[in-house]
Design a protein around this nucleic acid. Structure first.
Length: 729
DNA sequence: AGCACGCCGACT
DNA sequence: GTCGGCGTGCTC
C-alpha cells in the first residue's frame, strides 16, 4: 500500500497524503482525484511518501489516477517546487497556475491535433487537371500546388490568400491530413523563405551557436528594427534541426498572432504550439500535452508558457525581456523572464533575452558579465534611426496640449501624405471632472482615484475598478452648472486634432478604441491600408508594429513620469519613448520624434535624442546604486488589504514585530505604509517593504517569516500576499 | 478557499 | 419556540 503526497489547489502551505493501493513511482507527476472534506478535489502527485505525517487511520484513499496523459517529468516538478519556495506560495496554487485548467480535471484530454499537417490528396490532383469552374476552393488548391509538395500546417494554409476555404478543401477530399509519423520525419523542419542575415546578425548567431550547448544566458540588445526576431528564428532553426524543442516567450497576446504567423510560415512543417491565457481550455490543454509528449517542436507563448513541459528542450528565447507583462501581478507573483533563466540553468540550455531597451536588472547582469551581450546597432530595413528633438514648452501657449511646432510638423506630414502619431499615455477625454466654484472633483466611490471623463459615451469611469456612471449636468455638491473636465486624454486630443486638421482622418488607438482583438486587428488594418493620417495613441502603439508610412511621432505629457514617486518610472519612460520612437520611419522614409517638455535639458531626453541606451542605463544604475535600489538590493513586499485601513496596517505592524524577532543580520524592515492607490474596489491597502543586499539573506528570512504568517489567525476580511522582486514599490 | 460547527437576534 | 448571522477551525 503506497502513500502519495498530493498538491491541492488551496491557499495552504502544505501537501496532503493519501493512500493509493496501486500507485508506483511511475505515478509521480500524474493528476489525481481525491476525496477532500465532504467533496472531491483534483490535484497532482508530487511524490510517494514513506510515511504520512498524520495518523494512518485518518488517511483517505485516492479516487482516481489519470493515466491517459504522460506524467509531468521530474524537472517540471522541480520547477514548480522552486516557484513555490522562491515566491513563498503554496505548492498547490503553483501547480494550479502551471497546469492548464482542463488537465487538472483528470478526465482525459483528446490528443487530437488542432493544427494538423495537410497534403494534396488524389482527388485534389484530379481536380487540378480537370476543367472545373473557378471557385475559392480551387483557387486555394492551385495556390497550394504552386507552392510545392507540402505538407503544410493547417494554420499555414489558413494564412494564405483565400485560406478561409481550407475547411471546404478538406470536405471535398482534395486535401487530407498527412500521416503523422511517416510524413513528418523528412520535411519536418523544412524552412520557409529566409532573408539574408546582416553582418551583425551573423555575428550574434555565430557567437551564440559557437558557444555550444549548455547553460549560458545571453542578452541580445538590438535597436528597434535591427532584426532581433530574425536572430531568434535562425537560432530556433538550428536547434530544431538537432531535434530539440524551442520555448519562445512573448509579452502579450496583442503581438502574438503576428509572430505566430511568422513562425508558422518559417517553419512550415514544424509543430508549433501556442500557449496563452486567451486560449480555450481544450486548446491550451492540447498544446500542453503536445509539449509534454515531445510532439511540439516550438512552444510560443506568454508568461504562462514558461511552465510548458519540454522533454527535448534545447533553447529558450525571451522577446522584449523588459516587458512588465512577464511579471504576474496577482496570485503567485512570478516573473516568467526570471524563471526562464532558472529553467535554462536547470536544463543546461542557452537562454536568449532580447530587447531594444533591456530592463536595468538584465543590463546590470550583462555589464557584470553574468550574461553575455550581443549588440545589434544597425536597422535592417530603414537607413537611419529617427531624429529625436525636444520642443521646449515653457514659454509656449499650448492648444489642448499641442505646441505650434508639433502642429506645424503634423501639417507637413499631412501635406506629404505621410502618417503621424501623437503619443499620450492617458486614455479618456479628461482625467477628472471638477467644479470650479466649490472644488468638487469626480472621485471614485470605491477607490482613491478620480473618475475619468469619457465624452465618447458620456460616462465617468474609474480606470482602476471599472465602475462608471453618467456625466452629471450640474455639480452634485453645489448644483453649479459650470462643471468642467480638467486635463486631457486621448479623446480630447483626438477631438482637437480633428478641428485643427479638418481634412485629416484622425484615428484614436487606445484600450477603449481597440478593446477586443477583433477591433485591434481592424484598427491595424486601417492603419496599414493608409486609412488614417493622424493617430492618437497610448502605449498600445508603442509595441512592435511596423507602420511603413509613419514618419512623425509627437510625444505629449511625458514629463509627468520624471516626477513620479516610483523609482522605476524613468526606466519605463525611457523604454516607452524609445519603443514608440521606433515606430517612426521604418519604411523607406526617415522618421522624426518630437518630445514636448518643460525640461529639454533633462539627461533622459538628451540620451534619448542620441539613442544612447548605454548612457541612460549607466546613469540610472548609478542612481539606483547610490539610493540602494534594485538591482543593488533585493526586495520583497508584504501587502495587506481590508475594508478598513487600520486593519491592514495593524496586521502589517504585527507582521513586522514577528519579523524583528527572526530578522538576520543585513535585513532591513521598513514601516508599514498605505499604498499609493490606497483604496481600490472598496478595499484599503497597505504594504511593508523588506530588503537585503544578499538574495540569500532575504530568501532565508522569508521562508521562516511566511511560515509564521500562515500560522497567525487573522480576521476573515483581511487578506495578505507576498510579492518577491516587486515591480511596483 | 470552501464548508462545517457554534452560539446569539428577529420571526413564522 | 426556530431560521440564520458570520466568527473559528479543519481539510490528508
Amino acid at each position: 500500500m503506497s502513500i502519495v503526497r498530493v498538491a491541492l489547489p488551496l491557499p495552504l502551505p502544505q501537501v496532503f497524503d493519501y493512500l493509493a493501493p496501486d500507485a508506483t513511482a511511475a505515478d509521480v507527476g500524474r493528476c489525481v482525484t481525491v476525496p477532500f472534506g465532504r467533496g472531491e478535489r483534483n490535484g497532482l502527485i508530487l511524490a510517494l511518501g514513506a510515511a504520512a505525517d498524520i495518523e494512518p487511520a485518518r488517511l483517505k484513499t485516492v479516487r482516481h489516477i489519470q493515466r491517459e496523459v504522460p506524467p509531468l517529468p521530474a524537472d517540471w516538478l522541480e520547477l514548480v517546487d522552486f516557484v513555490a519556495r522562491y515566491y513563498h506560495a503554496p505548492i498547490g496554487e503553483v501547480v494550479a497556475l502551471a497546469l492548464p485548467p482542463g488537465l487538472r480535471r483528470a478526465d482525459g484530454v483528446s490528443g487530437e491535433d488542432e493544427d494538423p499537417l495537410l497534403q494534396i490528396a488524389a482527388a485534389g490532383r484530379e481536380a487540378l487537371c480537370g476543367a472545373r469552374r473557378a471557385s475559392k476552393a480551387l483557387a486555394l488548391l492551385q495556390g497550394l500546388a504552386a507552392a510545392g509538395e507540402g505538407p503544410w500546417r493547417r494554420s499555414v494554409v489558413r494564412a494564405l490568400e483565400g485560406g478561409e476555404a481550407v475547411g471546404e478543401l478538406l470536405r471535398r477530399g482534395w486535401i487530407r491530413v498527412a500521416e503523422r509519423v511517416a510524413d513528418r520525419v523528412a520535411p519536418r523542419h523544412a524552412a520557409g523563405a529566409q532573408p539574408e542575415p546582416t553582418p551583425e546578425q551573423t555575428q550574434a548567431l555565430e557567437a551564440i551557436l559557437g558557444a555550444g550547448p549548455g547553460f549560458k544566458p545571453w542578452l541580445v540588445h538590438g535597436v528597434t528594427g535591427s532584426g532581433k526576431t530574425e536572430v531568434y528564428l535562425r537560432l530556433a532553426a538550428h536547434l530544431l534541426a538537432q531535434g530539440r524543442q524551442v520555448l519562445m516567450l512573448v509579452p502579450e497576446i496583442a503581438l502574438t498572432p503576428q509572430l505566430e504567423r511568422r513562425v508558422a510560415q518559417r517553419f512550415a512543417a514544424a509543430h508549433v504550439v501556442s500557449l496563452h491565457s486567451a486560449l480555450a481550455d481544450g486548446a491550451r490543454s492540447r498544446g500542453f500535452v503536445q509539449a509534454l509528449a515531445g510532439e511540439a517542436d516550438i512552444v510560443l507563448g506568454t508568461r504562462l508558457a514558461v511552465f510548458a513541459p519540454l522533454p527535448r528542450l534545447g533553447l529558450i528565447l525571451v522577446d522584449e525581456e523588459h516587458d512588465a507583462s512577464y511579471k504576474q501581478q496577482e496570485g503567485v507573483r512570478y516573473s516568467a523572464r526570471d524563471l526562464a533563466v532558472w529553467r535554462a540553468r536547470q536544463r543546461g540550455v542557452p537562454v536568449v533575452l532580447g530587447s531594444a531597451t533591456p530592463s536595468l536588472e538584465t543590463w546590470y547582469h550583462a555589464r557584470s558579465e553574468r550574461y553575455a551581450l550581443q549588440t545589434l546597432n544597425q536597422r535592417a530595413l530603414a537607413a537611419t534611426l529617427p531624429a529625436v528633438r525636444c520642443i521646449d514648452t515653457r514659454r509656449l501657449r499650448l492648444d489642448e496640449g499641442l505646441s505650434p511646432a508639433l502642429q506645424a510638423a503634423l501639417g507637413e506630414r499631412l501635406a506629404r501624405g505621410e502618417q503621424s502619431l501623437v503619443f499620450l499615455n492617458r486614455r479618456g477625454y479628461a482625467p477628472v471632472l471638477s467644479c470650479p466654484s466649490c472644488g468638487w472633483v469626480s472621485r471614485c466611490p470605491h477607490c482613491s482615484a478620480n473618475l475619468v471623463v469619457h465624452l465618447a459615451d458620456r460616462r465617468l469611469r474609474c480606470h482602476h475598478c471599472g465602475c462608471d456612471g453618467p456625466i452629471p449636468s450640474a455639480c452634485p455638491s453645489c448644483g453649479d452648472q459650470d462643471i468642467r473636465p480638467f486635463g486631457r486624454g486621448t479623446q480630447r486630443v483626438e477631438a482637437r486634432l480633428a478641428e485643427l486638421f479638418p481634412q485629416a482622418r484622425v484615428l484614436r488607438v487606445d484600450r477603449d478604441a481597440a478593446r477586443t482583438r477583433r477591433q485591434w486587428e481592424s484598427v491595424l488594418a486601417t492603419i496599414a491600408e493608409g486609412g488614417a493620417d493622424i493617430l492618437v495613441g497610448t502605449q498600445m502603439m508603442a509595441k512592435g508594429h511596423d507602420f511603413p508610412n509613419l514618419t512623425l511621432v509627437g510625444v505629449i505629457g511625458a514629463d509627468a513620469a520624471l516626477h513620479a514617486a516610483d523609482f522605476r518610472a524613468p526606466e519605463r519612460l525611457f523604454q516607452q519613448l524609445m519603443q514608440v520612437g521606433g515606430r517612426a520611419g521604418r519604411g523607406a522614409l526617415a522618421g522624426t520624434v518630437l518630445i514636448q517638455t518643460e525640461y529639454p535639458a533633462h539627461p533622459l531626453y538628451q540620451q534619448l535624442a542620441r539613442h544612447d541606451f548605454d548612457a541612460f542605463a549607466r546613469m540610472a544604475l548609478q542612481e539606483r546604486r547610490s539610493a540602494g535600489f534594485p538591482p543593488f538590493t533585493h526586495q520583497a513586499m508584504l501587502r495587506a488589504d481590508a475594508p478598513a485601513l487600520d486593519a491592514a496596517v495593524d496586521f502589517l505592524r504585527h507582521a513586522r514585530r514577528l519579523a524583528e524577532e527572526c530578522a538576520p543580520e543585513g535585513l532591513r524592515l521598513y514601516d508599514p505604509v498605505p499604498m499609493r492607490l490606497t483604496r481600490l474596489a472598496r478595499r484599503e491597502r497597505a504594504q511593508l517593504l523588506i530588503e537585503a543586499d544578499q538574495r540569500g539573506v532575504l530568501q532565508g528570512f522569508l521562508a521562516g517569516w511566511v511560515a509564521l504568517l500562515y500560522r497567525q489567525r487573522t480576521a476573515r476580511e483581511l487578506r495578505w500576499q507576498l510579492d518577491v522582486d516587486p515591480l511596483e514599490v
